[in-house]
């Protein structure tokens, strides 16, 4: 198992990044840092996909000069998935930033724990 981690270093790096992003999203009290964590998490997956789809020496999967032999190009499906994933994560980031802005305007802090405390106070 050990040597494989070094051979597939892209995948290893992306898993480490995923873990960093996941923990940041989960544990950071700061809302903006949470959103950054989410972006790191998703980008790690795109790195993983990009690394999986790349074939050494392959060209971008766009037919130029009528070459239709698939062995010349890299695998186009992971790239397509990355594009779809980017669209998803952009919209999620936009929504969460909008929410963060609303929360900041109302409670004057970006710390989620403090916000929840203030919400509790409002309730009481």
């Amino acid at each position: 198992m050990g040597p494989n981690l070094f051979t597939n270093y892209y995948e290893t790096a992306s898993m480490i990044l995923f873990a960093i992003g996941f923990t940041t999203l989960f544990l950071q009290p700061n809302i903006i840092k949470k959103i950054i964590g989410f972006n790191i998490m998703d980008t790690a997956i795109y790195l993983f996909l990009g690394a999986k789809g790349y074939i050494a020496g392959g060209l971008a999967p766009i037919i130029v000069n009528g070459v239709t032999d698939p062995s010349v190009y890299i695998n186009p499906i992971p790239s397509g998935l990355v594009l779809t994933g980017i669209v998803v994560s952009v919209s999620v980031t936009a929504v969460s930033l909008a929410l963060a802005q609303r929360l900041y305007k109302r409670y004057n802090t970006l710390n989620i724990d403090e916000i929840l405390l203030q919400v509790e106070k409002e309730r009481a």
């Binding site: 995923f18 992003g21 996941f22 999203l25 989960f26 809302i31 949470k34 989410f38 998490m41 998703d42 997956i45 993983f48 996909l49 999986k52 998935l81 994933g85 999620v92 929504v95 969460s96 929410l99 963060a100 609303r102 929360l103 109302r106 409670y107 989620i112 916000i115 929840l116 203030q118 919400v119 409002e122 309730r123």
Partner: peptide
């Protein structure tokens, strides 16, 4: 109101954790 926005943010964070794990498993 403040309470619903903070609840929505909580919900969003938990959902993103869930869908992140799901995406990883698909990939």
């Amino acid at each position: 109101n403040g309470r619903s926005i903070s609840s929505a943010f909580r919900y969003l964070i938990m959902s993103l954790l869930g869908s992140g794990l799901f995406l990883l498993s698909i990939i």
